[in-house]
Design a protein around this nucleic acid. Structure first.
Lengths: 183, 183
DNA sequence: CACTTTGTTCAAGTTTTTTTGAACAAAGTG
DNA sequence: CACTTTGTTCAAAAAAACTTGAACAAAGTG
């Protein structure tokens, strides 16, 4: 008798489940996170928030993605740290809620600030250390070779330092979508 | 066997061990590889070759770094694939020998070509897939939201595609150190 | 040819990274 | 207060990534 058994899809899709396209987007970010060297759960969390227009609580994130409390907590913290997610306080609500940052410039900027810059800084230290080791040597062939290599590394370091500001700049240039161009 | 001087492994350069500064440089590259998402052994191998002015055989690489045959073989192959190492045939020598590419432009270019470009390509496919999933939907709210998100992702994709050529260009600008010309 | 040298492959072992969940802390509520 | 809700921490479990080495292939040598 039941003509349409809608039973398998919860009444009016009260966002208790992910839509197919959302699953695909989440998977896209999972892979992206991976290739940026971030845990895949970070990608999933960001992807989910990216899909939604409204803020989600940690609890919702856990349930929708079926990940543990620990992963959700750590993932959200790291993403906030990166500037990829921000928390929002809905008045009259006890739990914190989260939304995704969708301005590419901000995302790239945060990533570079948290990942690239620290590496460059550590690089300075390493170069100094090498310099010291070379200083202990006499004018051996090895030492002269070392000095040359050290110079090359210093040059690279300088180049990379110069590159990063450009990247931040170029990416920000036209953040929004192209004006709806005909076709 | 051969008595005449094959300058490479000649008596003057009988380095059976690494110098301290070389160890530091190798460690630097080990860490760098890691943060680029490459296995650390790749970093070590590149670092070793970077330190040396003369080509090394796989055998020497294995022994100097104390890594296995498998690691050496796979690492060298991957590095060649990335354009970070090239092989050299010394006439009258059976084994292949390897040298590091030290032009930053080439290194960055190879990395982008092998790592970034493929990801962007895969992205096109993923975007198409999402489009398809959205096409199956009626004009639900979810679908409209999905379309908006898809547009955002497409915009990002375009931005990244535009960025990469700039990176390759900027890095190449003044590759070498002052004077020291060779090409 | 039989033998040596050089390099590749891949299943199994090792190490590293990520995830989980239970214990805990903090803060709101009645 | 006692109780609930929300979020953090971290040791242990699980998963993923990397390395090893023995078996194999390819190619030079005498």
């Amino acid at each position: 008798m039941t003509v349409f058994s809608v039973a398998n899809i919860s009444s009016t899709n009260r966002q208790e489940d992910l839509d197919e396209w959302e699953i695909a987007v989440i998977d896209l970010f999972l892979n992206a996170a991976n290739s940026f060297g971030l845990p895949k759960s970070y990608g999933q969390i960001y992807g989910l928030l990216f899909c939604r227009d409204q803020s989600l609580s940690m609890d919702q994130v856990m349930k929708l993605l079926e990940i543990s409390k620990g992963s959700a907590s750590q993932g959200l913290r790291a993403l906030r740290q990166l500037g990829a997610v921000s928390s929002v306080f809905e008045p009259g609500d006890r739990k914190e809620r989260y939304v995704a940052e969708i301005r590419l410039r901000k995302l790239v900027g945060g990533f570079l600030r948290e990942q690239a810059d620290p590496h460059l800084d550590k690089g300075v230290g390493r170069l100094k250390q090498i310099e010291t080791l070379l200083g202990n040597l006499d004018n051996t062939d090895s030492m002269k070779r070392g000095v040359r290599k050290h110079e090359i590394l210093s040059g690279w370091h300088r180049q990379m330092s110069r590159l990063l500001p450009w990247v931040k700049m170029i990416v920000g240039k036209s953040d929004r979508l192209p004006q709806k161009s005909s076709d």
